[in-house]
C-alpha cells in the first residue's frame, strides 16, 4: 500500500437531471476500498443531491438518496456543503439527509488547494 492521498469529489449537478450524481456516488463507494483520505463536496446545484424527502416512484427512477447514509459505513465522513449554494436555493443544513459541514465557497476553494486529486462530477 502506497502513501495515503487526499481525494476530493466535487459534486455540482442536481440529482436526477443528469447521471453525474449517481456516478459520483458509485465511484466514491468503489474507491473507498483503497483506504484513501476521501472527502465529498456539494456545491451549486449539487446541494440538491442531499435534499431530503425524495420520492421517485412517479418518475420510475431509483431513489439512491438512502445510499448517502451508508457513506459513513464506508469511512467517507467528510461531507462539505457550500453555504452560498444553500442560501441561493432557500435551503439550510436541516433540509439535508445526512450531517454535513457547511463551508463558504472560499473555504472550499482553500480545501481544494490541499488535495492531491480532485474528481469533478
Amino acid at each position: 500500500m502506497g502513501e495515503v492521498k487526499k481525494f476530493m469529489y466535487v459534486n455540482r449537478k442536481a440529482p436526477f437531471g443528469t447521471i453525474y450524481a449517481l456516478e459520483s456516488l458509485e465511484v466514491v463507494l468503489i474507491a473507498a476500498a483503497f483506504d484513501q483520505d476521501v472527502s465529498m463536496v456539494f456545491m451549486d446545484d449539487g446541494v440538491y443531491q442531499l435534499k431530503k424527502g425524495v420520492d421517485t416512484k412517479a418518475i420510475e427512477v431509483k431513489n439512491f438518496q438512502p445510499t448517502y447514509r451508508a457513506l459513513d459505513d464506508y469511512d467517507v465522513n467528510k461531507l462539505y456543503v457550500e453555504a452560498e449554494a444553500l442560501e441561493a436555493r432557500g435551503l439550510t443544513a436541516g433540509d439535508l439527509c445526512v450531517p454535513v459541514e457547511v463551508l463558504t465557497r472560499a473555504q472550499i476553494g482553500k480545501l481544494m488547494e490541499e488535495q492531491d486529486i480532485l474528481l469533478s462530477f
Binding site: 442536481a14 440529482p15 436526477f16 440538491y48 435534499k51 431530503k52 424527502g53 425524495v54 420520492d55 421517485t56 416512484k57 412517479a58 418518475i59 427512477v61 431513489n63 438518496q65
Partner: peptide, 11 residues
C-alpha cells in the same frame, strides 16, 4: 408534480 416530488421539493 412527479418531477417536483422526486426532488424532495413538493413542500
Amino acid at each position: 408534480a412527479p418531477d417536483l416530488a422526486a426532488r424532495g421539493m413538493s413542500d
